[in-house]
Amino acid sequence: QTKVLKMQATWPASLTLYDNFTYFVDRVNKLSAGALKIEAMPAGQVVPAFEVLDATNKKVLDGAHAWAGYWTGKNKTAILFTGGPGGTFGMDFMDVMGWLYHGGGLELYNEFYQKELKLNLVVFPILPAGPQAFGWFKKPIQTVEDMKGMKCRQTGMAGEVWQALGFTVVNMPGGEIIPSAQRGVIDCAEWVGGIEDMQLGFHNVWKYHYSPGLHENVTVGELVINGDVWKELSPQHQEIIKSAANETFLVWWTKWQRQNADALIEMQQKHGVQILRTPTEILLAFIKKWDEIAAAEGARNPFFKKVHDSQKAYASAVVPYKRSYFPPYSFMANYYFPTEK
């Protein structure tokens, strides 16, 4: 007797983010010897992309492959479970996963959906979609001032930070970004970075690609499953899903870094794209503004503060310690592959 779970993603099948989903589906199928089958569907097939969380709660879908940052309209705490801007307190991917598994983060994540939002869901981290680039620009940028008066396609909490810094944030569906860019409706845009940006065709419109960004330097996507569906699964199937999600996270994360490295090479060599470092001033301005916004949100949203504090406690133990044990990435990178100066 095959158990079939129907799940939908918040992305179209054309994105490599969707490959993370199908990799997971394939692993579950093989690990269960075909007894547990997950049917993966792209955005919009059953419900519109941004309705997947509510749809999973109502069991229209058995599960969803999504990103918590899309739910900040319900409660801004959601952004923290993606890792949050700046990785939150300087945490990298490994630290954020550490916080989730060893710092009480995953319990808070589930508590957030189940108690705060009163949704019948369980959640697991599955998709490390980062680090993401700062974005694409129609001309070089040097200071925060340069960006004022520019219209940028940016969404969610990152958009909120930019708006607070005086930039103009506009939203539009993925398919409209490139035509809008060609037509001058926008002067800059952030999408995903690397191969995803190339697939959309940014390199054909703009030549100035800045990285890194601090808005999604760590960004973790989620696998949510309806609570009743989860309880009805056998303990073995539950373990298969958990293991497959973790394996997907690791395997896909490494693949993502490789594919983006290849994409950056192609952008530079084939398309004449300028790969530029985001000016420090801009990164600092971003992170300062984010801290202000986070502090303000913490003051009026107790659950936000609870999660933020939990992250701070974990980060304050791990981040400074890692600095003494981890050789700086740039030290060895510069030693073996010095940038031309």
Binding site: P140, N204, V205, L276, R277, T280
Partner: peptide, 27 residues
Amino acid sequence: HEASRSQVIPEEYRKILEQQKQAPSLE
């Protein structure tokens, strides 16, 4: 599409880009 693809980097931008490549990063 082609019109937007075939753009050249203006001279004034080149200078800025040179500077930026020299500038130290936070890292």
